[in-house]
Design a protein around this nucleic acid. Structure first.
Length: 516
RNA sequence: GGCGCCAUCGUCUAACGGUUAGGACACCGCCCCUUCAAGGCGGUAAUACGGGUCCGACUCCCGUUGGCGCCGCCA
Protein backbone atom coordinates (compact mmCIF):
# COMPACT_ATOMS: atom_id res chain seq x y z
CA UNK A 1 0.00 0.00 0.00
CA UNK A 2 1.24 3.44 -0.84
CA UNK A 3 1.32 5.74 2.12
CA UNK A 4 0.15 9.30 2.19
CA UNK A 5 2.40 11.78 0.49
CA UNK A 6 2.11 14.72 2.80
CA UNK A 7 2.80 15.08 6.47
CA UNK A 8 0.52 18.02 6.97
CA UNK A 9 -2.91 17.12 8.23
CA UNK A 10 -5.82 17.84 5.91
CA UNK A 11 -9.36 16.93 6.90
CA UNK A 12 -12.64 17.54 5.18
CA UNK A 13 -16.33 17.67 5.77
CA UNK A 14 -18.24 16.46 2.75
CA UNK A 15 -21.99 16.70 3.23
CA UNK A 16 -24.54 16.31 0.48
CA UNK A 17 -27.07 19.10 0.16
CA UNK A 18 -29.99 16.70 0.14
CA UNK A 19 -31.27 17.62 3.57
CA UNK A 20 -30.68 20.04 6.38
CA UNK A 21 -27.46 19.77 8.29
CA UNK A 22 -28.58 17.90 11.37
CA UNK A 23 -26.79 17.52 14.66
CA UNK A 24 -24.92 14.42 13.54
CA UNK A 25 -23.51 16.18 10.51
CA UNK A 26 -22.59 19.19 12.58
CA UNK A 27 -20.66 16.97 14.94
CA UNK A 28 -18.80 15.28 12.08
CA UNK A 29 -17.84 18.73 10.81
CA UNK A 30 -16.76 19.74 14.31
CA UNK A 31 -14.54 16.70 14.83
CA UNK A 32 -12.83 17.23 11.48
CA UNK A 33 -12.34 20.88 12.29
CA UNK A 34 -10.99 20.15 15.75
CA UNK A 35 -8.66 17.45 14.54
CA UNK A 36 -7.25 19.75 11.87
CA UNK A 37 -6.84 22.62 14.33
CA UNK A 38 -5.22 20.46 16.94
CA UNK A 39 -2.67 19.28 14.41
CA UNK A 40 -2.08 22.65 12.80
CA UNK A 41 -3.66 21.31 9.67
CA UNK A 42 -6.27 22.34 7.16
CA UNK A 43 -9.98 21.80 7.16
CA UNK A 44 -11.75 21.64 3.83
CA UNK A 45 -15.43 21.92 3.00
CA UNK A 46 -16.72 20.00 0.04
CA UNK A 47 -20.35 19.84 -0.98
CA UNK A 48 -21.20 16.51 -2.58
CA UNK A 49 -23.99 17.55 -4.89
CA UNK A 50 -23.75 14.92 -7.60
CA UNK A 51 -27.30 13.75 -7.01
CA UNK A 52 -29.06 16.40 -9.06
CA UNK A 53 -32.48 15.02 -8.22
CA UNK A 54 -32.16 15.50 -4.51
CA UNK A 55 -29.63 18.29 -4.11
CA UNK A 56 -31.22 21.64 -3.31
CA UNK A 57 -29.69 25.12 -3.04
CA UNK A 58 -31.55 25.71 0.23
CA UNK A 59 -29.76 22.77 1.84
CA UNK A 60 -26.46 24.00 0.47
CA UNK A 61 -27.15 27.33 2.14
CA UNK A 62 -28.26 25.64 5.33
CA UNK A 63 -24.93 23.82 5.60
CA UNK A 64 -22.95 27.02 5.13
CA UNK A 65 -25.09 29.05 7.53
CA UNK A 66 -24.90 26.37 10.10
CA UNK A 67 -21.13 26.07 10.10
CA UNK A 68 -20.87 29.81 10.27
CA UNK A 69 -23.19 30.00 13.24
CA UNK A 70 -21.24 27.33 15.09
CA UNK A 71 -17.97 29.08 14.35
CA UNK A 72 -16.57 26.17 12.36
CA UNK A 73 -14.38 27.84 9.76
CA UNK A 74 -12.89 26.08 6.79
CA UNK A 75 -9.55 26.85 5.19
CA UNK A 76 -10.59 25.76 1.72
CA UNK A 77 -13.85 25.48 -0.11
CA UNK A 78 -16.66 25.14 -0.39
CA UNK A 79 -15.84 22.96 -3.35
CA UNK A 80 -18.81 21.54 -5.19
CA UNK A 81 -18.66 18.25 -7.01
CA UNK A 82 -21.03 19.52 -9.65
CA UNK A 83 -18.26 21.90 -10.70
CA UNK A 84 -15.63 19.20 -11.00
CA UNK A 85 -17.11 16.86 -13.56
CA UNK A 86 -14.07 17.03 -15.84
CA UNK A 87 -11.88 15.60 -13.12
CA UNK A 88 -14.09 12.59 -12.47
CA UNK A 89 -14.46 12.01 -16.18
CA UNK A 90 -10.71 11.79 -16.58
CA UNK A 91 -10.37 9.12 -13.91
CA UNK A 92 -13.42 7.29 -15.19
CA UNK A 93 -11.84 7.08 -18.62
CA UNK A 94 -8.65 5.80 -17.09
CA UNK A 95 -10.43 2.99 -15.25
CA UNK A 96 -12.37 2.08 -18.38
CA UNK A 97 -9.24 2.02 -20.50
CA UNK A 98 -7.38 -0.15 -18.05
CA UNK A 99 -10.42 -2.41 -17.84
CA UNK A 100 -10.78 -1.88 -14.12
CA UNK A 101 -14.27 -0.64 -14.84
CA UNK A 102 -16.84 -1.44 -17.49
CA UNK A 103 -20.16 -0.36 -18.92
CA UNK A 104 -23.18 -2.17 -17.60
CA UNK A 105 -26.42 -2.29 -19.58
CA UNK A 106 -28.46 -4.44 -17.24
CA UNK A 107 -31.96 -3.07 -16.62
CA UNK A 108 -32.73 -2.09 -13.05
CA UNK A 109 -35.69 -4.46 -12.75
CA UNK A 110 -33.50 -7.41 -13.58
CA UNK A 111 -30.95 -6.34 -10.97
CA UNK A 112 -33.62 -5.93 -8.35
CA UNK A 113 -35.02 -9.41 -8.99
CA UNK A 114 -31.54 -10.85 -8.74
CA UNK A 115 -30.95 -9.15 -5.43
CA UNK A 116 -34.22 -10.43 -4.00
CA UNK A 117 -33.37 -13.94 -5.05
CA UNK A 118 -29.89 -13.83 -3.58
CA UNK A 119 -31.17 -12.56 -0.27
CA UNK A 120 -33.87 -15.20 -0.18
CA UNK A 121 -31.31 -17.98 -0.35
CA UNK A 122 -29.12 -16.33 2.26
CA UNK A 123 -26.46 -15.02 -0.04
CA UNK A 124 -24.87 -11.59 -0.04
CA UNK A 125 -26.67 -9.65 -2.78
CA UNK A 126 -24.21 -8.63 -5.44
CA UNK A 127 -23.97 -8.04 -9.15
CA UNK A 128 -23.32 -11.11 -11.28
CA UNK A 129 -20.67 -9.46 -13.43
CA UNK A 130 -22.66 -10.23 -16.56
CA UNK A 131 -21.70 -7.10 -18.53
CA UNK A 132 -18.01 -7.45 -17.72
CA UNK A 133 -17.95 -10.19 -20.35
CA UNK A 134 -19.14 -7.92 -23.15
CA UNK A 135 -16.65 -7.44 -25.97
CA UNK A 136 -15.49 -3.97 -26.98
CA UNK A 137 -17.52 -4.20 -30.15
CA UNK A 138 -20.67 -5.13 -28.29
CA UNK A 139 -20.21 -2.20 -25.95
CA UNK A 140 -19.64 0.25 -28.78
CA UNK A 141 -22.64 -1.09 -30.61
CA UNK A 142 -24.93 -0.80 -27.61
CA UNK A 143 -23.79 2.73 -26.84
CA UNK A 144 -24.13 3.85 -30.44
CA UNK A 145 -27.78 2.81 -30.50
CA UNK A 146 -28.26 4.82 -27.32
CA UNK A 147 -28.68 2.00 -24.85
CA UNK A 148 -28.55 3.27 -21.30
CA UNK A 149 -25.40 2.31 -19.44
CA UNK A 150 -23.84 2.82 -16.02
CA UNK A 151 -20.21 2.29 -15.13
CA UNK A 152 -19.21 -0.47 -12.79
CA UNK A 153 -16.00 -0.98 -10.91
CA UNK A 154 -14.42 -4.42 -11.12
CA UNK A 155 -14.20 -5.05 -7.40
CA UNK A 156 -11.24 -7.35 -6.71
CA UNK A 157 -12.41 -10.33 -4.67
CA UNK A 158 -10.04 -10.21 -1.76
CA UNK A 159 -9.84 -9.44 1.92
CA UNK A 160 -9.46 -5.74 2.68
CA UNK A 161 -7.96 -4.76 6.00
CA UNK A 162 -7.46 -1.29 7.34
CA UNK A 163 -6.65 0.29 10.61
CA UNK A 164 -9.49 2.48 11.74
CA UNK A 165 -8.29 5.39 13.88
CA UNK A 166 -11.12 4.82 16.30
CA UNK A 167 -11.95 1.13 16.01
CA UNK A 168 -8.61 -0.46 15.32
CA UNK A 169 -8.15 -3.17 12.73
CA UNK A 170 -11.23 -3.82 10.61
CA UNK A 171 -11.55 -6.49 7.98
CA UNK A 172 -13.97 -7.05 5.10
CA UNK A 173 -14.31 -9.71 2.45
CA UNK A 174 -14.59 -7.69 -0.75
CA UNK A 175 -15.63 -10.85 -2.57
CA UNK A 176 -19.03 -10.28 -1.00
CA UNK A 177 -19.34 -6.78 -2.41
CA UNK A 178 -19.59 -7.39 -6.12
CA UNK A 179 -18.98 -4.91 -8.93
CA UNK A 180 -20.40 -1.65 -7.71
CA UNK A 181 -21.73 1.19 -9.84
CA UNK A 182 -19.35 4.11 -9.62
CA UNK A 183 -20.99 6.46 -12.11
CA UNK A 184 -24.40 6.86 -13.68
CA UNK A 185 -22.62 8.12 -16.77
CA UNK A 186 -19.41 9.95 -17.63
CA UNK A 187 -20.80 13.19 -16.21
CA UNK A 188 -22.33 11.79 -13.07
CA UNK A 189 -20.03 10.08 -10.61
CA UNK A 190 -21.50 8.30 -7.62
CA UNK A 191 -20.49 8.67 -4.02
CA UNK A 192 -17.82 6.02 -3.58
CA UNK A 193 -15.99 7.12 -6.69
CA UNK A 194 -16.40 10.89 -6.41
CA UNK A 195 -15.32 10.94 -2.80
CA UNK A 196 -12.21 8.88 -3.52
CA UNK A 197 -11.17 11.11 -6.43
CA UNK A 198 -11.75 14.29 -4.46
CA UNK A 199 -10.03 13.07 -1.34
CA UNK A 200 -7.01 12.35 -3.47
CA UNK A 201 -7.15 15.58 -5.47
CA UNK A 202 -7.58 17.58 -2.29
CA UNK A 203 -4.82 15.66 -0.56
CA UNK A 204 -7.01 14.66 2.34
CA UNK A 205 -4.99 12.79 4.94
CA UNK A 206 -7.60 11.97 7.56
CA UNK A 207 -11.19 11.09 6.94
CA UNK A 208 -13.41 11.35 9.98
CA UNK A 209 -16.96 10.42 9.18
CA UNK A 210 -20.02 8.71 10.57
CA UNK A 211 -20.03 5.03 11.33
CA UNK A 212 -22.55 4.42 8.57
CA UNK A 213 -19.63 4.73 6.16
CA UNK A 214 -17.61 1.94 7.70
CA UNK A 215 -18.75 -0.58 5.11
CA UNK A 216 -18.04 1.88 2.28
CA UNK A 217 -14.41 2.00 3.28
CA UNK A 218 -13.24 -1.25 1.65
CA UNK A 219 -14.86 -0.16 -1.61
CA UNK A 220 -13.06 3.14 -1.49
CA UNK A 221 -9.76 1.53 -0.63
CA UNK A 222 -10.07 -0.78 -3.63
CA UNK A 223 -10.87 2.13 -5.94
CA UNK A 224 -7.87 4.01 -4.57
CA UNK A 225 -5.67 1.07 -5.42
CA UNK A 226 -7.06 0.78 -8.93
CA UNK A 227 -6.34 4.45 -9.47
CA UNK A 228 -2.92 4.32 -7.84
CA UNK A 229 -3.85 6.71 -5.07
CA UNK A 230 -2.42 6.81 -1.57
CA UNK A 231 -4.69 5.71 1.27
CA UNK A 232 -5.88 8.32 3.68
CA UNK A 233 -6.44 7.39 7.32
CA UNK A 234 -9.98 6.59 8.32
CA UNK A 235 -11.76 7.13 11.58
CA UNK A 236 -15.40 6.21 11.96
CA UNK A 237 -17.29 8.19 14.52
CA UNK A 238 -20.19 6.59 16.37
CA UNK A 239 -23.67 7.73 15.49
CA UNK A 240 -25.82 10.13 17.44
CA UNK A 241 -28.93 8.27 18.47
CA UNK A 242 -32.55 9.14 19.22
CA UNK A 243 -33.76 8.36 22.76
CA UNK A 244 -34.90 4.92 21.58
CA UNK A 245 -31.37 4.18 20.34
CA UNK A 246 -32.35 4.30 16.69
CA UNK A 247 -30.57 6.48 14.18
CA UNK A 248 -31.65 10.10 14.40
CA UNK A 249 -34.37 10.40 11.80
CA UNK A 250 -36.22 13.28 10.21
CA UNK A 251 -39.07 12.80 12.63
CA UNK A 252 -36.87 12.54 15.63
CA UNK A 253 -34.48 15.38 15.97
CA UNK A 254 -32.87 15.28 12.55
CA UNK A 255 -33.89 18.86 11.93
CA UNK A 256 -31.53 21.57 10.84
CA UNK A 257 -29.02 22.54 13.45
CA UNK A 258 -30.19 26.07 12.81
CA UNK A 259 -33.46 25.14 14.48
CA UNK A 260 -31.56 25.16 17.74
CA UNK A 261 -30.59 28.71 17.05
CA UNK A 262 -34.24 29.61 16.53
CA UNK A 263 -35.27 28.07 19.82
CA UNK A 264 -32.62 30.12 21.57
CA UNK A 265 -29.61 27.92 22.06
CA UNK A 266 -26.23 29.58 22.00
CA UNK A 267 -23.69 28.19 19.53
CA UNK A 268 -21.15 27.86 22.34
CA UNK A 269 -23.53 25.57 24.20
CA UNK A 270 -24.32 23.46 21.17
CA UNK A 271 -20.67 23.08 20.25
CA UNK A 272 -19.75 22.09 23.79
CA UNK A 273 -22.66 19.68 23.90
CA UNK A 274 -22.04 17.86 20.61
CA UNK A 275 -18.31 17.67 21.25
CA UNK A 276 -19.08 15.60 24.34
CA UNK A 277 -21.41 13.32 22.44
CA UNK A 278 -18.85 10.68 21.67
CA UNK A 279 -15.76 12.39 22.97
CA UNK A 280 -14.32 13.48 26.29
CA UNK A 281 -10.99 14.87 27.36
CA UNK A 282 -10.36 12.22 30.00
CA UNK A 283 -10.43 14.84 32.73
CA UNK A 284 -13.34 16.08 34.74
CA UNK A 285 -13.53 19.37 32.93
CA UNK A 286 -16.73 19.52 30.93
CA UNK A 287 -17.13 23.12 29.92
CA UNK A 288 -15.09 23.95 26.85
CA UNK A 289 -15.04 26.76 24.35
CA UNK A 290 -14.40 25.98 20.70
CA UNK A 291 -10.78 27.02 20.95
CA UNK A 292 -10.24 25.02 24.13
CA UNK A 293 -11.68 22.02 22.34
CA UNK A 294 -9.27 22.59 19.48
CA UNK A 295 -6.43 22.42 21.95
CA UNK A 296 -7.62 19.34 23.78
CA UNK A 297 -9.20 17.26 21.05
CA UNK A 298 -7.80 13.83 20.43
CA UNK A 299 -9.04 10.75 18.64
CA UNK A 300 -8.09 8.69 21.69
CA UNK A 301 -10.99 10.24 23.51
CA UNK A 302 -13.52 9.34 20.87
CA UNK A 303 -16.06 6.73 21.86
CA UNK A 304 -16.90 3.61 19.87
CA UNK A 305 -20.53 3.28 20.86
CA UNK A 306 -23.35 5.54 19.74
CA UNK A 307 -24.57 8.31 22.02
CA UNK A 308 -28.11 9.35 22.74
CA UNK A 309 -28.97 12.97 22.20
CA UNK A 310 -30.04 14.18 25.62
CA UNK A 311 -31.77 17.56 25.53
CA UNK A 312 -31.64 18.05 29.29
CA UNK A 313 -27.91 18.23 29.19
CA UNK A 314 -27.98 20.67 26.30
CA UNK A 315 -30.39 22.82 28.31
CA UNK A 316 -28.10 22.75 31.29
CA UNK A 317 -25.11 23.85 29.24
CA UNK A 318 -27.14 26.49 27.48
CA UNK A 319 -28.23 27.93 30.82
CA UNK A 320 -24.60 27.99 31.84
CA UNK A 321 -23.51 29.88 28.74
CA UNK A 322 -26.45 32.26 28.97
CA UNK A 323 -25.38 33.21 32.48
CA UNK A 324 -21.87 33.85 31.24
CA UNK A 325 -22.82 35.88 28.21
CA UNK A 326 -22.68 39.66 28.19
CA UNK A 327 -25.91 41.52 28.78
CA UNK A 328 -25.51 43.48 25.56
CA UNK A 329 -25.24 40.34 23.50
CA UNK A 330 -28.13 38.62 25.24
CA UNK A 331 -30.34 41.66 24.91
CA UNK A 332 -29.50 41.90 21.25
CA UNK A 333 -30.44 38.28 20.73
CA UNK A 334 -33.60 38.62 22.81
CA UNK A 335 -34.99 41.45 20.75
CA UNK A 336 -35.70 39.05 17.92
CA UNK A 337 -37.92 37.03 20.22
CA UNK A 338 -39.78 40.04 21.54
CA UNK A 339 -40.41 41.16 18.00
CA UNK A 340 -41.49 37.80 16.69
CA UNK A 341 -43.98 37.32 19.51
CA UNK A 342 -45.45 40.74 18.79
CA UNK A 343 -44.50 42.34 22.07
CA UNK A 344 -42.34 45.05 20.56
CA UNK A 345 -41.79 46.43 17.10
CA UNK A 346 -39.23 48.38 15.21
CA UNK A 347 -39.38 50.63 12.22
CA UNK A 348 -36.67 48.63 10.53
CA UNK A 349 -38.30 45.41 9.39
CA UNK A 350 -35.04 43.60 8.62
CA UNK A 351 -33.66 44.27 12.06
CA UNK A 352 -34.75 41.15 13.88
CA UNK A 353 -32.91 38.97 11.44
CA UNK A 354 -29.69 40.92 11.49
CA UNK A 355 -29.78 41.02 15.27
CA UNK A 356 -30.08 37.29 15.58
CA UNK A 357 -27.09 37.04 13.30
CA UNK A 358 -25.18 39.31 15.60
CA UNK A 359 -24.69 42.23 13.28
CA UNK A 360 -27.35 44.75 14.11
CA UNK A 361 -26.72 47.89 16.10
CA UNK A 362 -29.52 47.74 18.63
CA UNK A 363 -28.31 50.67 20.66
CA UNK A 364 -28.93 52.90 17.67
CA UNK A 365 -32.34 51.53 16.83
CA UNK A 366 -35.74 52.62 17.94
CA UNK A 367 -38.05 50.10 19.52
CA UNK A 368 -41.64 50.54 20.53
CA UNK A 369 -44.01 48.58 22.68
CA UNK A 370 -46.39 47.30 20.07
CA UNK A 371 -49.54 47.75 22.13
CA UNK A 372 -48.97 51.37 23.16
CA UNK A 373 -46.42 52.56 20.59
CA UNK A 374 -44.43 53.79 23.54
CA UNK A 375 -40.76 54.11 22.72
CA UNK A 376 -38.34 52.04 24.72
CA UNK A 377 -34.59 52.05 24.93
CA UNK A 378 -32.07 49.31 24.43
CA UNK A 379 -31.25 49.66 28.11
CA UNK A 380 -34.81 48.79 28.96
CA UNK A 381 -34.41 45.47 27.17
CA UNK A 382 -31.03 44.99 28.77
CA UNK A 383 -32.47 45.43 32.23
CA UNK A 384 -35.16 42.87 31.56
CA UNK A 385 -32.59 40.42 30.34
CA UNK A 386 -30.48 41.09 33.41
CA UNK A 387 -33.43 40.30 35.64
CA UNK A 388 -34.17 37.04 33.87
CA UNK A 389 -30.93 35.68 32.57
CA UNK A 390 -30.44 33.42 35.56
CA UNK A 391 -33.75 31.76 34.90
CA UNK A 392 -33.33 31.00 31.22
CA UNK A 393 -32.51 27.66 29.68
CA UNK A 394 -33.33 28.92 26.21
CA UNK A 395 -33.45 32.48 25.00
CA UNK A 396 -36.92 32.07 23.57
CA UNK A 397 -38.28 31.55 27.07
CA UNK A 398 -37.80 35.19 27.86
CA UNK A 399 -40.95 36.32 26.09
CA UNK A 400 -43.21 34.20 28.23
CA UNK A 401 -41.37 35.14 31.40
CA UNK A 402 -41.18 38.86 30.77
CA UNK A 403 -44.18 39.66 28.59
CA UNK A 404 -45.79 41.71 31.36
CA UNK A 405 -43.26 44.49 30.89
CA UNK A 406 -44.87 45.20 27.53
CA UNK A 407 -48.52 44.90 28.42
CA UNK A 408 -50.83 47.53 29.81
CA UNK A 409 -53.48 45.19 31.16
CA UNK A 410 -52.38 42.29 33.27
CA UNK A 411 -54.77 39.43 33.55
CA UNK A 412 -54.39 37.23 36.58
CA UNK A 413 -56.53 35.57 39.17
CA UNK A 414 -57.03 37.87 42.16
CA UNK A 415 -56.44 34.95 44.47
CA UNK A 416 -52.84 34.97 43.29
CA UNK A 417 -52.24 38.18 45.22
CA UNK A 418 -52.69 36.35 48.50
CA UNK A 419 -49.55 35.25 50.32
CA UNK A 420 -50.02 31.95 52.16
CA UNK A 421 -53.21 32.25 54.23
CA UNK A 422 -53.49 36.00 54.16
CA UNK A 423 -56.95 37.48 54.51
CA UNK A 424 -58.40 39.53 51.69
CA UNK A 425 -58.38 42.70 53.78
CA UNK A 426 -54.73 42.20 54.60
CA UNK A 427 -53.95 41.89 50.92
CA UNK A 428 -55.53 45.28 50.37
CA UNK A 429 -53.65 46.62 53.36
CA UNK A 430 -50.43 45.24 51.93
CA UNK A 431 -50.97 46.85 48.56
CA UNK A 432 -51.83 50.17 50.19
CA UNK A 433 -48.67 49.90 52.20
CA UNK A 434 -46.62 49.34 49.06
CA UNK A 435 -48.26 52.30 47.38
CA UNK A 436 -47.54 54.39 50.42
CA UNK A 437 -43.90 53.38 50.59
CA UNK A 438 -43.20 53.62 46.90
CA UNK A 439 -44.89 56.90 46.24
CA UNK A 440 -42.57 58.52 48.75
CA UNK A 441 -39.48 57.43 46.88
CA UNK A 442 -38.01 60.10 44.66
CA UNK A 443 -37.48 59.31 40.98
CA UNK A 444 -33.79 59.82 41.53
CA UNK A 445 -33.70 57.05 44.13
CA UNK A 446 -35.78 54.67 42.07
CA UNK A 447 -33.10 52.04 41.65
CA UNK A 448 -33.17 48.34 42.24
CA UNK A 449 -30.72 48.54 45.12
CA UNK A 450 -32.56 51.31 46.86
CA UNK A 451 -35.97 49.76 46.33
CA UNK A 452 -34.68 46.51 47.74
CA UNK A 453 -33.24 48.16 50.81
CA UNK A 454 -36.41 50.05 51.58
CA UNK A 455 -38.85 47.30 50.74
CA UNK A 456 -37.03 44.64 52.76
CA UNK A 457 -36.97 46.93 55.76
CA UNK A 458 -40.60 47.92 55.39
CA UNK A 459 -41.74 44.37 54.73
CA UNK A 460 -40.28 43.31 58.05
CA UNK A 461 -42.00 46.13 59.88
CA UNK A 462 -45.27 45.45 58.12
CA UNK A 463 -45.05 41.74 58.79
CA UNK A 464 -44.44 42.09 62.50
CA UNK A 465 -47.29 44.52 62.78
CA UNK A 466 -49.61 42.16 60.94
CA UNK A 467 -48.53 38.95 62.61
CA UNK A 468 -47.32 40.27 65.94
CA UNK A 469 -43.63 39.74 65.74
CA UNK A 470 -43.48 37.05 63.07
CA UNK A 471 -41.02 37.91 60.35
CA UNK A 472 -42.49 37.00 56.99
CA UNK A 473 -41.52 39.42 54.26
CA UNK A 474 -43.90 37.72 51.88
CA UNK A 475 -46.89 39.59 53.29
CA UNK A 476 -45.66 42.73 51.60
CA UNK A 477 -43.44 41.39 48.83
CA UNK A 478 -45.71 38.72 47.45
CA UNK A 479 -48.76 40.86 46.68
CA UNK A 480 -46.36 43.39 45.23
CA UNK A 481 -44.80 40.82 42.93
CA UNK A 482 -48.10 39.61 41.62
CA UNK A 483 -49.52 43.11 41.23
CA UNK A 484 -46.53 44.13 39.12
CA UNK A 485 -46.04 40.99 37.07
CA UNK A 486 -49.34 39.19 37.14
CA UNK A 487 -47.35 36.05 37.81
CA UNK A 488 -46.53 33.80 40.72
CA UNK A 489 -43.12 33.16 39.25
CA UNK A 490 -40.98 36.13 38.42
CA UNK A 491 -37.87 38.11 39.13
CA UNK A 492 -37.82 39.94 42.44
CA UNK A 493 -40.35 42.76 42.85
CA UNK A 494 -37.47 45.22 43.31
CA UNK A 495 -36.04 44.45 39.93
CA UNK A 496 -39.42 44.59 38.28
CA UNK A 497 -40.35 47.89 39.90
CA UNK A 498 -37.00 49.38 38.97
CA UNK A 499 -37.46 48.46 35.33
CA UNK A 500 -41.11 49.47 35.18
CA UNK A 501 -40.47 52.88 36.72
CA UNK A 502 -42.42 54.66 39.40
CA UNK A 503 -45.43 55.64 37.36
CA UNK A 504 -46.23 52.21 35.96
CA UNK A 505 -45.46 50.54 39.24
CA UNK A 506 -47.98 52.66 41.12
CA UNK A 507 -50.51 52.26 38.37
CA UNK A 508 -50.29 48.49 38.55
CA UNK A 509 -50.63 48.54 42.30
CA UNK A 510 -53.74 50.65 42.06
CA UNK A 511 -55.38 48.37 39.54
CA UNK A 512 -54.51 45.40 41.74
CA UNK A 513 -56.59 47.03 44.47
CA UNK A 514 -59.65 47.60 42.39
CA UNK A 515 -59.34 44.48 40.36
CA UNK A 516 -59.39 46.01 36.93
C1' G B 1 -30.93 -13.07 5.42
C1' G B 2 -25.39 -11.70 4.70
C1' C B 3 -21.38 -8.65 6.36
C1' G B 4 -19.55 -5.28 9.90
C1' C B 5 -19.50 -2.35 14.41
C1' C B 6 -20.78 -1.83 19.48
C1' A B 7 -22.06 -3.00 24.95
C1' U B 8 -20.10 0.81 32.74
C1' C B 9 -25.69 4.48 36.74
C1' G B 10 -32.05 6.62 33.15
C1' U B 11 -28.39 9.77 29.88
C1' C B 12 -23.11 11.49 28.53
C1' U B 13 -18.89 9.22 30.41
C1' A B 14 -13.87 8.03 33.82
C1' A B 15 -11.13 3.48 34.74
C1' C B 16 -6.40 1.47 30.09
C1' G B 17 -5.20 -6.19 35.45
C1' G B 18 -5.30 -4.36 41.92
C1' U B 19 -10.44 2.07 43.04
C1' U B 20 -15.36 1.81 48.87
C1' A B 21 -16.27 1.55 40.24
C1' G B 22 -15.11 8.48 39.89
C1' G B 23 -17.53 12.94 37.52
C1' A B 24 -21.56 15.56 34.91
C1' C B 25 -26.92 15.96 33.42
C1' A B 26 -31.58 14.36 35.15
C1' C B 27 -34.14 12.86 39.66
C1' C B 28 -34.88 13.14 45.21
C1' G B 29 -33.83 15.62 50.02
C1' C B 30 -31.81 19.72 52.87
C1' C B 31 -29.86 24.87 53.18
C1' C B 32 -30.57 29.93 51.31
C1' C B 33 -35.28 32.43 50.55
C1' U B 34 -40.88 36.99 48.91
C1' U B 35 -41.86 32.96 44.11
C1' C B 36 -39.04 30.56 40.40
C1' A B 37 -34.30 30.05 39.13
C1' A B 38 -29.14 30.33 40.33
C1' G B 39 -25.85 28.75 44.24
C1' G B 40 -24.23 25.38 48.47
C1' C B 41 -24.57 20.49 50.83
C1' G B 42 -26.19 15.43 50.64
C1' G B 43 -28.66 11.02 48.43
C1' U B 44 -30.68 7.04 44.96
C1' A B 45 -28.49 4.73 40.70
C1' A B 46 -24.14 0.95 36.54
C1' U B 47 -19.85 -2.99 34.76
C1' A B 48 -25.91 -7.31 29.78
C1' C B 49 -25.23 -12.80 30.53
C1' G B 50 -22.16 -17.36 30.55
C1' G B 51 -17.51 -19.48 30.24
C1' G B 52 -12.27 -19.18 30.37
C1' U B 53 -6.87 -16.80 31.33
C1' C B 54 -4.72 -14.82 35.82
C1' C B 55 -2.83 -14.56 42.71
C1' G B 56 -6.39 -10.84 40.99
C1' A B 57 -10.82 -8.93 35.78
C1' C B 58 -15.06 -3.25 34.05
C1' U B 59 -10.41 -4.03 31.79
C1' C B 60 -7.63 -9.78 28.07
C1' C B 61 -9.90 -14.28 25.14
C1' C B 62 -14.30 -17.22 23.54
C1' G B 63 -19.47 -17.74 23.28
C1' U B 64 -24.58 -16.00 24.06
C1' U B 65 -27.91 -12.07 24.10
C1' G B 66 -29.12 -7.33 22.73
C1' G B 67 -28.53 -2.73 19.98
C1' C B 68 -26.95 -0.22 15.71
C1' G B 69 -25.03 0.40 10.68
C1' C B 70 -24.46 -1.15 5.65
C1' C B 71 -25.95 -4.48 1.80
C1' G B 72 -28.86 1.97 -3.90
C1' C B 73 -28.07 3.90 -10.82
C1' C B 74 -28.38 8.13 -2.26
C1' A B 75 -24.52 10.14 0.50
Amino acid sequence: MEKKISNEVRTRFAPSPTGFLHIGGARTALFNYLFAKKNNGFFILRIEDTDIERSKPEFDKDILDCLKWLGIEYNEGPYRQSERKEIYKRYLEKLLEEERAYYCFCPEEELEAQKQYQMSIGEAPRYSGKCSNLSKEEVVAKISVGEKAVIRFKTPARIVKFNDLIRGEVEFDAGLIGDIVIAKNMETPLYNFGAVVDDFEMKITHILRGEEHLSNTPKQILIQEALGFFHPEYGHIPLILAPDRSKLSKREGAVSTLEYKKIGYLPEALVNFIAFLGWNPGTEKEVFSLSELAQEFSLDGVQKAGAIFNVQRLDFLNGLYIRQKSLEKLAELSIAYFISTGLIETIQPKLAESLSNGNGHPEKQIFRIKETKEEISFDFIKNIVAAYRERLKKLSEITELADFFFRTELSYDRGALKWKNMREKDVLLSIDKSIDILSKIEDLNWTKENLEKILILESEKFSSKLHEGINDRGVLLWPLRVALSGKKVSASPFEIAAILGKEKTLKRLKSAKTGN
